[in-house]
C-alpha cells in the first residue's frame, strides 16, 4: 500500500496501535522522559499527549536481517545468471532471484521506501534495456543476411557462445527482473475505486502507468 503512514521505520513498534485516543494505554509503557520546563507551561509535554494513532512501523529485526542477506542473495542471483551453461540457472532464474531480493527489501522496509530506492525509471529501464539488447543481438544476424538470433554471424570471437551468453545475461535477466518487480509494485499499489482518493494514490497511479507500459510490450 502506498498510503501507509510511516511505512518503513526504524523500529518494531506499536503496529496494531491504531486504537482510539480514549483507549490508548500504549502511551504508558513508553520509556518516561524527564519533563524539563522553562516557562512553557501552556504547552503540554510530549509524554502527556495522548497519541491519536500509531503508524505501523517495520520490524527492526527483519530489516537488519534483510540488510545482511540482501547483498549475498543478489550476488547469488547474478552468479546464477552468469553460470547458465554449466549449472542450473541462466537469465530467467537469475533475474527472478534478483527480483526476489527487491521484493524482500520491499517487505522489510515498506513499499514506499523501496520505491524511492528502486525507482520506476530503473524498473522500466531494466525491462526496456533488456528488450533492446535482445532485439539488437537478434537483429545483427538479420542485417548480416542471416536469420534472427543467428549467433554465428556476430562480429565477435566465439560468436555462438558469447552471443547466447549476451542474450541471457543482458537481455533475459533484466527483462525478467524488471517485469517481476514492476508487477509486484503494480499489485502493491492495489486498486482504489473510491471517489476523491486521488491524492493518496498518486504514486500508485504513476507506477500503474509505468507497469502497464511494460506489460503492453
Amino acid at each position: 500500500m502506498s498510503d501507509t503512514p510511516g511505512a518503513g521505520s526504524d523500529v518494531d513498534d506499536a503496529a496494531a496501535g491504531s486504537g482510539d485516543a480514549s483507549d490508548a494505554p500504549d502511551v504508558s509503557d513508553r520509556p518516561p522522559i524527564e519533563p524539563t520546563y522553562s516557562g512553557h507551561d501552556d504547552r503540554p509535554h510530549l509524554s502527556q499527549i495522548q497519541r491519536q494513532q500509531t503508524p505501523y512501523t517495520e520490524s527492526q529485526v527483519i530489516m537488519s536481517t534483510v540488510k545482511v542477506v540482501a547483498p549475498f542473495a543478489l550476488t547469488f542471483g547474478l552468479f546464477v545468471t552468469f553460470h547458465g551453461a554449466d549449472s542450473p540457472g541462466g537469465g530467467f532464474q537469475g533475474g527472478a532471484i534478483a527480483a526476489a531480493v527487491v521484493l524482500m527489501i520491499a517487505f522489510a522496509f515498506g513499499i514506499d521506501a523501496t520505491r524511492e530506492w528502486f525507482t520506476n525509471v530503473v524498473v522500466v529501464g531494466l525491462a526496456v534495456g533488456g528488450v533492446l539488447v535482445f532485439g539488437g543481438i537478434g537483429l545483427v544476424g538479420l542485417v548480416d543476411g542471416g536469420t534472427f538470433l543467428e549467433y554465428a554471424r556476430l562480429p565477435i570471437p566465439h560468436p555462438v557462445k558469447y552471443g547466447m551468453e549476451g542474450v541471457e545475461i543482458l537481455g533475459i535477466a533484466p527483462i525478467v527482473a524488471g517485469v517481476l518487480v514492476g508487477l509486484f509494485f503494480l499489485l502493491a499499489a492495489g486498486f482504489d475505486d473510491r471517489d476523491g482518493a486521488g491524492t493518496e494514490t498518486e504514486i500508485a497511479d504513476a507506477t500503474t502507468d509505468d507497469a502497464t507500459t511494460e506489460d503492453d510490450r
Partner: peptide, 10 residues
C-alpha cells in the same frame, strides 16, 4: 536509516 524521516515527522 533511509526510512526514518517520514515516521519522525509523524
Amino acid at each position: 536509516n533511509t526510512t526514518l524521516l517520514q515516521p519522525m515527522e509523524f
